[in-house]
Computed example of a mutant assay.
Amino acid sequence: MIKSILITGCNRGLGLGLVKHLLSIPNPPDKLIATCRNLEKAKDVQLLQLQPLKLNLNSDVTDFNSYDDFKLKLENILKDDGLNVLFNNAGTSPKSTKLHLVKPSQLVDTFVTNTVAPIMLTKTLVPLLKTAAQKNSDKPIGSQRAAIINMSSILGSISENNTEGLYPYKCSKAALNMATKTLSNELKNDNIVATSIHPGWVKTDMGGPKAPLDVDTSVKGIVDLILTLSSDHNGGYFQYNGKALPW
């Protein structure tokens, strides 16, 4: 059982699917904190507010000036228990494909959302993760203590890259994988696991209608992986079904 989990980017797609699935498992988290840029427009997330002990917060991951206030809100919610799982799910992918279509603004904006924001949000919230790791020192290393999960993609794998285009998304996810690996080295002695997850090619607004996986299949696998995280997953790169992936 996970006491607390924070998931960014929950207005639709995989983020919303993760929230719904976590609420449906036999022992849902005591505190499930779902964030999105504009809660007023996220009607499905608003409906989940009816669940007891579950909270929704407005949070634009690219608004770095808001991070300190966001941390204070979390501290008021979590009290002295800290945060068990930080799931950096919020992401973006511009429509550009081939090299001649890529614009500097697309590269910069995608890196800010997909790479810079997860690093900076983790930096802000790592004290809460350390508190949870210490508070649950009798628990096995993993999500019952403290874990950072970064939503990556197989498109961020350099060794598996055999397609053209998608420069902003591919490069930002490869950089996020490097951040995950580096976090795993830096926070290992604090008993905090850091791992990257590829959700599969999923039928979402980003994945498109041709994707072979539905959201339910992907998020079920991801939640199963979260619940079974261990020290063996630290610094790793895994598919939604637990399969290890090459960098």
Rank of each mutant, 00 (worst) to 15 (best):
S105V: 14
P28T: 03
L83E: 04
P26D: 01
K31E: 15
A42Q: 03
S105K: 13
Y67W: 10
D30A: 14
V45T: 11
I77M: 04
T97G: 07
N38F: 05
I25A: 03
Q49E: 11
V61M: 00
V108Q: 10
I33E: 03
N89M: 05
T62Q: 09
Q106Y: 06
L57T: 13
N58F: 04
L57Y: 08
V85T: 02
E40W: 06
S24H: 13
K95I: 13
L39E: 12
L57N: 10
L74D: 01
F87Q: 03
D63K: 07
I33Y: 02
K54L: 06
L23T: 04
D69N: 14
K20M: 08
F70D: 04
S24N: 06
A34C: 02
Q51K: 12
N27L: 11
H100Q: 11
D81T: 03
N76Y: 12
N76M: 12
S59T: 10
Q49I: 08
K71D: 07
N38M: 04
L83Q: 02
S105N: 14
L48C: 06
T110M: 06
N84E: 00
K71E: 15
D69Y: 08
I33H: 07
L101Q: 15
D69R: 13
N58T: 15
P26E: 01
K95T: 09
S24I: 05
N58V: 13
K73M: 01
L22C: 03
I25P: 10
K71R: 15
V108S: 10
T92N: 09
K54R: 10
I33M: 06
S105G: 08
V45M: 15
S59E: 14
H21N: 12
N65F: 08
T35R: 05
T35F: 00
K20N: 14
K31R: 12
H100D: 14
A34F: 00
N56D: 10
L72V: 14
R37K: 11
N65G: 12
F64W: 07
N27I: 10
N27K: 12
D69C: 09
K95S: 14
P26A: 00
K43L: 11
D63S: 06
K71Q: 15
D68Q: 14
E40N: 09
A90Q: 05
V108I: 15
Q106W: 07
Q51R: 11
Y67Q: 14
L50E: 13
L74Q: 03
P94M: 08
L107W: 05
Y67P: 05
T97D: 11
T110C: 10
T97H: 13
L86K: 12
P52K: 01
G91E: 06
V61C: 01
D69I: 08
L47M: 12
H100R: 08
L32R: 01
S66R: 07
Q49F: 05
A90S: 07
K43N: 09
L99R: 06
Q51I: 12
P26V: 03
N65R: 15
P28Y: 02
L78C: 03
F64Y: 11
K73P: 02
